[in-house]
Amino acid sequence: MLKYEEIVNFIQKSCWMLDEEDFDGFLGLCSKDFQYKITAFSPEINKEMIWMDEDFEGLKSLLGMVPEHLRRLGKFTRHVSIGQTSRKDHEVSINSTFIVIHTDLDGKSNIFGVGRYNDKITYTINDVFLLSRNAYLETRDLGIGSHVPI
């Protein structure tokens, strides 16, 4: 059985890889059936919305194109606080809260977004993989936005 400490380490690793923009490393943590979503609720139109919705191959393609895009300069840092976990067979559901901080090229940091991760991971004796991640954003004014998952 996967220990709580191993779960925490795995989630932190997934965030550090995104922080470092090690997209191949991040995809290496994901199952081939991986599903990634960014969602938010709009009180203006009273609707849930999906702002990013990709499977493994879709995410791989989009991440592969990131270096060709004009985008926000600087670095994102994801601060994750793991809350509840629940287990079923060889799957673990993990609810976390996150704060994503953006630091610009002058070293000035600002909060980019706040929200919750709903992750599902699967494991065998040797491996752990991310099955799905839903990043639910409370922050809806994201300034100029971002090209990379949060």
Binding site: M49, I50, W51, L70, I144, H147
Partner: peptide, 22 residues
């Protein structure tokens, strides 16, 4: 439809964040 819209025009899209950058 969300996907079609947001791949271009969402806050994590490939188009609108670049316009905002500009």
């Amino acid at each position: 439809r969300w996907k079609h819209h947001n791949q271009y025009w969402g806050p994590f899209g490939r188009n609108v964040p670049e316009d905002a950058f500009a």
